[in-house]
């Protein structure tokens, strides 16, 4: 009822809706979706498609942050993954074959899994602070990617590989289905098993969790492996989109956008409680904002400023203090309707 504004997803959803409304008012064709050759086109469809790499990375980041950690290496892992995939396709005799692309993608993701496991080892076994542990790979990863591609930007012409980022199935972009699959997989594994609540427990109070018998080492290690794997998949999508492995540009600053998406979605950087739905909305907010910048024709030199201003507004609107102030205003209005204090008792009984 009128407590809707206290729901933790209220502000993220409202921010997203406001962004869409503002865009639509500025240029009504923003909301338009057209059907052409069995494919849907439009700004909103572009947002669904283009958000896929950030979505995957942010999902992994959510789990890592829930354990009180952070993974700065995701961008570098994307670069490595792209380099691995492209190099395999490039060197194979048949770059256009589905089998080649399949092998390339699987190997790229496995390599990313190993990189995630390396991060997890540093954090959970050697107990190195996550920001330092993942900084190692963040700095070294792009070098590794360059090493794999021999210092060049490898480009390929492979129909099946390009299909990953640009293809369509059932009217919608393939990349969007990859996003959906990742969201569903993470949500199912975290919430249908006990992994989610154990992860939160480790993030909220590691020592109490250890004494309660929670295998916190495995849980933390696993979180970095999930993050690495998802970053690897994101790297494949990115490389597929540009049909090239660009070790310097792939996933640049994506760790920061991913952290931002997680925070916008209402998950605290202090660890503990996390919200997958929140992260999904956070990613859409960021992607819509990027589209807005393009759509409104903000000059590219000024776009970071525009981006920053909007982010500050959204973050401030979501802050505890601001929520408290707004809630008090709301309460004041309601108390005028019902001046008696008696309803408080009823709430408790509920």
């Amino acid at each position: 009822m009128n407590r809707i504004y206290k729901h933790r997803l209220f502000w993220p959803v409202l921010s997203l809706l406001v962004l869409i409304v503002v865009n639509t008012i500025a240029r009504p064709q923003f909301i338009e979706i057209t059907l052409q050759d069995g494919r849907l086109y439009g700004a909103l469809i572009d947002i669904l498609r283009n958000s896929a790499p950030l979505m995957l990375v942010a999902l992994g980041m959510t789990i890592v942050i829930a354990t009180r950690g952070i993974d700065l290496s995701v961008g570098a892992v994307m670069a490595v993954s792209g380099a691995v995939a492209l190099t395999i396709i490039d060197r194979s005799g048949s770059p256009g074959a589905v089998g080649t692309v399949f092998v390339a993608v699987i190997v790229a993701i496995l390599v990313s899994l190993v990189l995630g496991a390396w991060n997890g080892f540093l954090v959970s076994v050697l107990k190195i602070q996550p920001i330092i542990a993942t900084l190692v790979l963040m700095l070294a990863g792009r070098g590794v990617a360059l090493l794999i591609t021999g210092g060049f930007i490898t480009t390929v012409n492979s129909e099946p590989f390009a299909f990953i980022a640009s293809g369509y199935v059932l009217l919608l972009p393939v990349a969007f289905f990859i996003s959906i699959a990742a969201i569903a997989a993470v949500a199912l594994v975290e919430r249908r098993t006990a992994l989610g609540v154990l992860t939160e427990s480790v993030g909220i109070n590691p020592e109490a969790s250890r004494l309660a018998g929670v295998r916190s080492r495995g849980i933390i290690w696993g979180a970095y492996m999930v993050s690495g794997t998802l970053a690897g998949a994101a790297g494949v999508i990115y490389a597929s989109n540009i049909k090239a492995a660009d070790a310097n540009a792939a996933g640049l600053f994506i760790e920061l956008y991913a952290i931002l998406a997680v925070v916008l979605g209402g998950t605290s950087l202090a660890g503990g409680k996390f919200s997958i739905a929140g992260t999904v909305i956070g990613v859409f907010i960021i992607q819509t904002l990027e589209s807005t910048i393009l759509f409104l024709g903000v000059p590219s030199a000024q776009s970071p400023v525009f981006f920053a201003v909007v982010v500050v507004v959204v973050v401030v609107a979501q802050s505890q203090r601001m929520r408290g102030a707004i809630a008090r205003v709301g309460d004041a209005f309601r108390k005028q309707d019902a001046p008696e204090r008696d309803d408080e008792k009823v709430e408790v009984a509920r």
Binding site: T193, A194, L198, A212, G213, I219
Partner: peptide
């Protein structure tokens, strides 16, 4: 929490 930790994360 204690029961769940003993049972492991797979089976909620």
């Amino acid at each position: 929490l204690g029961m769940q930790a003993r049972q492991g994360w797979v089976r909620r």
